[in-house]
Computed example of a mutant assay.
Amino acid sequence: MAAALATLFVFTFAVALSTTAADPDLLQDICVADLNSTVKVNGFPCKKNPTEADFFSDILAKPGSTNNTLGSLVTGANVEKIPGLNTLGVSLSRIDYAPGGLNPPHTHPRATEMVYVLEGQLTVGFITTANKLFAKVIKKGETFVFPKGLVHFQKNNGNVPASVIAAFNSQLPGTQSIALTLFTAQPTVPDNVLTKAFQIGTKQVEKIKSRLASK
């Protein structure tokens, strides 16, 4: 009987851990990240003498430059920019888009994302593991949610700049751009993997790699 109860407890505990939605709960009031520490932990060690400045940033106040190939720029306000976010399980980003600008298909492996449109309008969408696309046009004052880990994108199809504030339930959500991950990884993904996966030739693979490597 005792063994059965122990097994049930272990199973229940494992299920509870597996349903954790975001970063682990904090165990103290604050743990400002010591970004200069050489100690490696799941997150960052606590800074000895935190100040008010560790909890403040104006990094999202101004639009970012969208003068690039994609016509978009993501400005992150995560734990690497605001050390006071360490262990708090939240962060923000500002994304600016030129007319026609694209935040290309990507994923956030550690967070769900919710965007709020500051200016303009965007076509946004995410794709489920069953390859179903959920897409919508959103405009100023509206929001849209991208579930954790799913491939998603935003595109400014308007003739004027657009911008959003993105909220995440992680202090450092991580970003994997699909194209960059596959074509600019180091060491490189073998060409025969990419040619078979995308049903294209080696010359096309090398062309894509060279174009993306220069970004």
Rank of each mutant, 00 (worst) to 15 (best):
P109I: 08
N36C: 04
T87H: 06
L133K: 06
D54P: 02
L102W: 03
L102T: 14
T19L: 15
G84W: 03
Y97H: 11
N68I: 12
K62I: 11
F126W: 13
L92S: 01
N49H: 06
N131I: 03
K48R: 07
A98S: 15
E80H: 08
L133C: 04
L70H: 03
D34T: 01
P63F: 07
N49R: 03
L102R: 10
Y116E: 01
G84V: 09
V115S: 09
P109M: 11
L26K: 15
T129H: 04
K40Y: 01
L88P: 04
A61Q: 11
G101C: 12
D29M: 10
E119H: 10
I95C: 06
L26C: 09
N49W: 00
G76D: 00
A77R: 04
V41F: 02
P99M: 13
G89M: 11
N131E: 10
K81H: 04
T19D: 00
L73W: 08
A16K: 05
L70D: 11
V74C: 00
D29K: 12
L102G: 05
P83C: 10
P105D: 03
G76L: 11
V41L: 06
E119I: 00
S37L: 05
D34E: 10
N86T: 08
N68R: 08
I95D: 00
T69Y: 04
N86D: 07
V39F: 02
P105L: 08
L60C: 04
N49A: 03
P99S: 12
G125L: 10
L27E: 14
R94G: 06
Y116S: 10
F126Y: 15
S72W: 06
